[in-house]
Design a binder for these strands. Structure first.
Length: 478
RNA sequence: GGUCUCGUCGUCUAAUGGUUAGGACUCCAGGUUUUCAUCCUGGCAAUUGCGGGUUCGAGUCCCGCCGAGAUCACCA
């Protein structure tokens, strides 16, 4: 039992009310890192007590998202709706102590109280309307906490430091709703206690209600965990917190757009945290080693997609080829799966273009010509800055010379190809910027492509010669 | 309105009370025998929200102000 106490244990506790945006996932990441850095456990609790906001499939989406970025949780996920008896049991304890009572009013009546206070320019507190003789509580009525110790609270937060708030915020908050399910305010306290949670991580929006929670811990006579408040991620413009209303994307959207989970965790970790050095590239394991609660920021940070894209590029270059091939599998265009095309060939194409990728979803657009002959578009040649100065005859001549030269080449290696191309430059007394551009465009008809000799080596002699011939014909018939 | 929190380049951030306030992203320029990208070099960019005070010395400590945000549900 004492071992359980010393074991660090954190929990991520989302509600299944829709997709997950980066704010939620960052909270999950920090929660995970705190536990793992200290050799502890990271638990998952689904807070599904609000049945009206429940969204079908949202729980699975939470699982998928966490798995994708590699945050494996310990034990089975806990669902609050299956723990009704536990909350009711603790509620009864409070009733027995005279610290909870039935709310006899309808929501409409409470609303009247609120409006009266508003007209009198007075802050509404339910406890000012506390019924003198509340009925015996039973399910079907809200159960409220009875604040008996109205005072200023001081407490410590691992991120925000020493905090304090006064009696103005202490109220008789609802513990159990009319439907018999607990509110977050009550359920999370009971659950965190029963689950042995040592560090509560949550967003800044819970700061104002913390004194109410402190009262409940006191009433329940349970030791409170450490509070770790995580600052908001800000919306793209303005200083507001990021929310779904501001068009915050689902994290799975980033996944589908070809962002690597390594880049996402690396990026999210640096929104409000750094290790104090100038190092910026961290894998999840690196983060586990370095993550330190005391270096979490206490101010909000803006989500900058540009930097995410940059980090994605860093990871795209860092991950080993085999692994990257697996990740890339679902991003290739359909042309990459022609019967004649092997896994090995796709992997070589990937290797050639990986430095040029921003995200994996760039793959089809960037590699189509490796898998099928490009559509000839002579405008690309005619409008090219350098090539536009050449006459049709010169271009046709260059292509013919190149075909002859390459046709004679027996060892079709990148190195040999480069030598051969260099020879051709000398023979034609032409600059690489002109000749290589011509060949490059004739082979790809793409705005950009990898280094010419490597591209040719991979395409193979037959394809290269066939494409050059087709372009030469097209120019002569133009 | 009450309460609470926050405030360093456009953005993410660094700086035991002690350098010309450092780094990264973005942007710009140059370099690496074609293009695009990578990579390398350099550049632009913060009178540390404002005003006082303490101190030989303040981004850092204290006070006031301003600004921004959060919250005040039978939502979490």
């Amino acid at each position: 039992m004492n071992d359980e106490k010393t074991q660090v244990r954190t929990r991520f506790a989302p509600s299944p009310t829709g997709y997950m945006h980066v704010g939620g996932v960052r909270t999950a990441l920090f929660t995970y890192l705190i536990a793992k850095h200290l050799g502890g456990e990271f638990l998952l609790r689904i807070e599904d007590t609000d049945q009206s906001r429940y969204v079908e499939g949202a729980t699975e989406l939470i699982f998928d998202t966490l798995k994708w970025i590699g945050l494996d949780w310990d034990n089975e996920p806990v669902f609050q709706t299956s723990r009704k008896d536990i909350y009711l049991n603790y509620a009864q304890k409070l009733i027995a102590k005279g610290l909870a009572y039935a709310d006899p009013y309808t929501p409409e009546e409470v609303q009247k109280f609120r409006e009266a206070d508003s007209q009198n320019k007075r802050a509404f507190l339910y406890r000012n309307y506390r019924p003198a003789n509340p009925p015996k509580w039973q399910i079907g009525m809200p159960l409220r906490f009875k604040q008996t110790n109205i005072k200023r609270w001081d407490w410590h937060d691992e991120v925000m430091g020493d905090l304090s708030a006064g009696a103005e915020v202490l109220d008789d908050i609802i513990l159990i709703k009319k439907d018999g399910l607990p509110t977050y305010n009550f359920a999370h306290i009971v659950d965190d206690y029963k689950m042995g949670i040592t560090h509560i991580t949550r967003g800044q929006e819970y700061l104002p209600s913390t004194p109410n929670y402190l009262s409940i811990y006191e009433a329940l006579e349970i030791e409170r965990p450490k509070f770790v408040t995580i600052p908001h991620i800000l919306a793209p413009t303005g200083g507001k917190k990021l929310s779904k209303r501001d068009g915050a994307k689902s994290v799975t959207d980033y996944r589908d757009e070809g962002i690597l989970p390594e880049a996402m965790t690396n990026f999210l970790a640096f929104l409000g945290w750094n290790d104090g050095t100038e190092r910026e590239i961290f894998s999840l394991d690196d983060l586990i080693k370095s993550f330190d609660i005391s270096r979490i920021h206490n101010s909000g940070a803006r989500f900058d997609e540009q930097k995410l894209i940059w980090l994605n590029g860093q990871w795209l270059r860092k991950i080993d080829t085999e692994e990257l091939s697996k990740r890339a599998a679902i991003f290739w265009g359909s042309e990459a799966f022609d019967a004649a095309i092997s896994d090995n060939y796709r992997q070589q194409v990937l290797e050639l273009v990986r430095d040029r990728l921003k995200t994996l979803s760039d793959l089809p657009m960037m590699t189509a010509y490796f898998f099928k002959d490009p559509t000839i578009d002579l405008n690309l040649i005619q409008n090219d800055k350098k090539l536009s100065k050449l006459s049709q005859e010169t271009i046709a001549n260059y292509l013919q010379k190149a075909i002859l030269k390459l046709n004679a080449l027996e060892d079709w290696s990148a190195e040999n190809l480069q030598n051969s191309l260099n020879d051709l430059l000398i023979e034609l007394a032409e600059k690489p910027a002109v000749l290589f551009s011509l060949i490059r465009i004739a082979l790809s008809f793409a705005p950009f492509s990898p280094q010419l000799n490597q591209m040719m080596a991979l395409l193979g002699k037959d394809t290269v010669l066939a494409r050059l011939n087709k372009v030469a014909d097209a120019i002569e018939n133009n």
